Amino acid sequence: MTDEQEQVQPSGVWATAVGVARVRALESARENALFRDPLAQAFAAAGGLWPSAPLPDDEAARRRRLGVAFSIVIRTKFLDDLLRQASASGIRQVVLLGAGMDSRAFRMDWPEGTRLFEVDTAAPLDFKASVLRREQAVPRCERRTVTVDLREDWPGALAAAGHDPAAPTVWIAEGLLIYLPEDAVEVLLARITAQSAVGSRMGLTLGSRGVIERFGADAAPGPAASMWVSEMPDDPIGWLAGHGWEAAGHTLRERAAAYGRPISAPPQHDEGPGGLISAVRR
């Protein structure tokens, strides 16, 4: 059977990962790119989103799409930096929850001995594997895929794949929590905490307050925003402290300015403490 025959057409929530890959491919082509993702274009092309994707007819919808794309670029840079800092601190276990088309195992420089786990369901991991085979991609660390639904016993599956909860881990949940209802977010965080030794780190992206009203309330079925269900707590730092994490929150505007991509539009009236979160297990 060929890779083309094996490949699964993207659908549902995980199909948005292919759209994210397209955004990363476009950023990688910029002269002043905040990161380089050499596999992003291949993922986007395999999902039918390269070289172009259909634009919404409505001007407001186009602006919203550009806003979401911009946030993807900034969050990617933010989490790349967090992972480098975690590696520099000595952490050698990385877990990507809802990994999608994440290619950090292939595009980042990892210290010797790093083991990176990609946790997702079978469909995106199979799709991804077919593209990686065609691209003859070679990971720069020990990469292990964990095929499991995050609503199931993913800690058990992760342990079976070789994760050691006694050693510090850096966890990444990028563009994930916004698709989960609040009770599922609580369960996920409790499970992460239970598998995290002291000194573990975590990077989260949270839907800012009001984002569903501004972007998702009138979204047509299909686009990512139409599947958003969860926004950040009123006090994300306090929320994480209650789970045993010392956290810092950053706004998209703040990080964009720090990366040389300032946002010219005036702040939203409800722009809160920020949906880019870094945390340390204490």
Rank of each mutant, 00 (worst) to 15 (best):
Q268L: 14
M232P: 03
R134C: 08
E6N: 11
I237A: 12
L158N: 04
D37T: 07
Q268Y: 15
I212H: 06
F43E: 00
A257F: 08
G162N: 10
G12A: 05
A99S: 02
A129R: 10
I192F: 00
I263K: 00
L180C: 13
L83F: 04
I237P: 00
R104Q: 01
E4K: 06
V119W: 01
K128A: 05
S130V: 09
A265R: 01
A33S: 04
D183K: 07
A61E: 13
Y259H: 10
R92G: 09
D164P: 07
A61G: 03
P266I: 04
V148M: 04
S130C: 14
G47D: 10
C141H: 08
A53R: 10
A105P: 02
L204P: 00
A60Q: 15
A159H: 11
T169L: 01
V68H: 10
A224H: 12
P236M: 10
R140V: 05
S130Q: 09
F215N: 11
I172Y: 10
E112K: 12
G19A: 13
S103V: 04
D218P: 07
V23C: 09
W110S: 00
P51N: 06
E142Q: 13
S103I: 00
G203W: 11
G113P: 06
R62K: 10
A224L: 13
A167M: 00
S89T: 07
I74H: 11
G216V: 04
G244P: 01
S230D: 10
D109Q: 15
G272M: 13
H163R: 11
M202L: 14
A137P: 01
P155Q: 03
I178L: 15
G242L: 02
S11H: 10
G67F: 10
R253L: 02
E182D: 15
P267Q: 00
S89L: 12
T145N: 06
R22F: 01
A159K: 07
V23H: 04
V13Q: 01
Q41Y: 01
F127G: 02
A129S: 14
Q85K: 11
V119I: 05
Q9E: 15
S196F: 00
A25I: 05
E271M: 12
P266C: 08
E254C: 03
W50Q: 04
F117G: 02
V68Y: 09
A160L: 09
